[in-house]
């Protein structure tokens, strides 16, 4: 299995641990990730509002480069996944747009024919690799994790990354159950975290993130696992600023990428999956943790 890897801008900055853990998981399951050479920003979700054709054209440049390799594109970032799929879909539905975009790409000797699908790592792990194979490769116990599986809003609609009910996806729960963890019931799993409102209207985004963390804490989760770098950054920043409440219960919990937890189960070290980049440390107190996990908890000890 070989895939073209499109990390996107955030996985080279705030989402660096997503980059590390995605590579680690794919290596463990024997799937090759070939990073798209000289990829550019997908334009994210805001560029379309400013200059429509330019937004499609810069996203299509990545698709055109990927078509030369011929493999499925794997885009871990939910915004990249959404934008690249939107570009593919709209170019297929609107011949005039396709003509304009390809006329633009021709300036750099490129052409986009939408021949390669764009997929999320979760989709690949569930549908190409399979839960059975992932579980068979497990070497470390993650039984002490009670993750709240948070999908965010961009991978379930309108271009569903996983073939499930967009309001109640269960792929991550099935994955972590197969690996021996105990995912909690988490109803707001596809609610919005506020996205870039964290910069423009921080009160709004703060409240949305607060609700998401409250839900997880009240359901007994000891971490939130997510598939989106912006969700992770927003929740991580908010979780970092929370205090213990009056009765001493932990009101802040670590926000992890789902790939980090899977990679740990498959034998990767905390360093390899970038646990040190989290703002809230992973502190699972049960005694059956691997030595590596205990070491990470101590390394972040000042946050306790």
């Amino acid at each position: 299995m070989r895939y073209t890897y499109y990390p996107g801008c955030s996985l080279h900055a705030t989402g660096v641990s997503y980059d590390k853990s995605t590579r680690a998981v794919f290596e463990k399951v024997g799937a090759e990730l070939v990073e798209l050479e000289d990829w550019n920003c997908c334009g994210a979700t805001s560029y379309t509002s400013v200059k429509k054709t330019v937004a499609y054209a810069i996203a299509a440049r990545n698709l055109a480069l990927a078509e030369k390799l011929g493999d499925d594109v794997v885009a871990p970032c939910s915004a990249c996944y959404y934008v690249l799929n939107k570009t593919r879909t709209h170019m297929a539905e609107m011949p005039e747009l396709k003509e304009q975009v390809n006329a633009s790409l021709a300036e750099a000797g490129l052409e986009c024919n939408m021949t390669v699908p764009v997929r999320k790592p979760l989709d690949v792990l569930v549908n190409d690799v399979g839960l059975d194979r992932v579980a068979a490769l497990q070497t470390n116990s993650i039984a002490d994790f009670r993750p709240a599986c948070y999908y965010g809003c961009q991978i379930v609609r309108p271009y569903g990354a996983i073939d499930e009910d967009p309001e109640m996806p269960m792929s991550m729960e099935h994955m972590f159950t197969a690996l021996g963890a105990h995912p909690v019931d988490y109803p707001p799993k596809v609610r919005c975290c506020g996205g870039m409102l964290i910069a423009t209207f921080p009160d709004v985004a703060g409240q949305l993130c607060d609700d998401l963390i409250d839900w997880a804490v009240e359901r007994g989760a000891n971490c939130i696992v997510t598939v989106c770098p912006l969700c992770q950054a927003n929740l991580d920043l908010l979780s970092m600023n929370r205090k213990r409440n009056g009765n001493g219960a932990q009101r802040r919990i670590p926000i992890m990428y789902f790939t980090q937890l899977i990679a740990l189960a498959l034998g990767s070290t905390p360093e390899e999956v970038g646990l040190k980049h989290g703002l809230v440390p992973v502190e699972i107190e049960a005694p059956r943790l691997s030595n590596a996990m205990v070491g990470t908890s101590h390394a972040h000890g000042e946050e306790a």
Partner: peptide, 23 residues
């Protein structure tokens, strides 16, 4: 380690600028 102090620049920036100008 989650903040880059310097931006990354792609090698094909001239081609990308031509694409943007045309679009």
């Amino acid at each position: 380690g989650r903040i880059r102090l310097l931006p990354e620049k792609i090698e094909g920036i001239d081609g990308l600028r031509r694409i943007i100008a045309k679009a």
